[in-house]
Every structure is written in C-alpha cells, then in structure tokens.
Write a protein that binds this DNA or RNA. Sequence first.
DNA 1: ATTCTCACA
DNA 2: TGTGAGAA
Length: 139
Amino acid sequence: MSDDIRRNMALFPIGIVMKLTDLTARQIRYYEQHGLIEPTRTSGNQRLYSFNDVERLLEVKALIEKGVNIAGIRQVLANGGEGNTEAAVLSTTTERKSREMTDTQLHQMLKQQLRAGRRPGQVSLIQGELSRFFPKRGL
DNA sequence: ATTCTCACA
DNA sequence: TGTGAGAA
C-alpha cells in the first residue's frame, strides 16, 4: 500500500495545518499533548504533519464543535489507533453520514481551503507541497 | 518570517 | 485556550 505511506508522509508545518484545519497553533499543539495526534519532528524540532494528521485534526475539530471533550475524542480515536478511526466515529457518534471522506473529497476540500487562505505572492509554497500528493491528477 | 517551549492573565 | 517572551 504505497498510498498509505503517502498519507502518512509528514510534510506540512503547523502554519499550513492551521489554514487547512482552521485551528490555532495552540489548539493543534494542545491536542498533540493529549495524544490526539503525533506529528513527526523533523528539522530543528519543527512539527511536520501528514495528511492523516490533518484529517485527524479535522475530526477532532468536528467533535470539539459537537461538544465532545478530549477524553471523549480520545475514546473515539482510540478504537483503532491509526486505522479504524472512521469506524470508531461511525459507531460511536451520531454523525454516521457526515463523516466519510473519500480521497476525492479530501482533495477537493484541500483545494477549497487553499483557495480560501490564498494570499497573493506566497501560495506557491503550499501548491508545491500538495503537488507531491497529486503528481498527475489535477490540483 | 516561522515555529518552539514555557509561563501567566 | 489565548498571549507574550526569548531562542532556534
């Protein structure tokens, strides 16, 4: 499954993740402290998040907005660790249909987020990052 | 310019 | 959780 390594390949810094998830750096780090995500620390202790991390963060965000606390989210994500997060969510919460992100949908979402946070002159970096994920497909 | 850790309002 | 300080 090379697709798996692709999704787990950490490549964006917290700044990008902030735009992608609409979470503050504080929150992102806070969730990490509570074991909700485990980004890799590549450079000088800089956090690098993978696509899976971003997706996970989005789930966390959704659950937080639903009023679920860290402990609750933990249980949701606990049932499967790195693989069956979706199953856990689907069986534990009320959002059976609202949370089912296919690859295509994820790609679309990322494009939207990217467009929304676009600031003339400094997006080339982000596009460059994403191109690693969508080498041939249209971005 | 960005991100990191730590501590305090 | 937010914010600011001080360093990488």
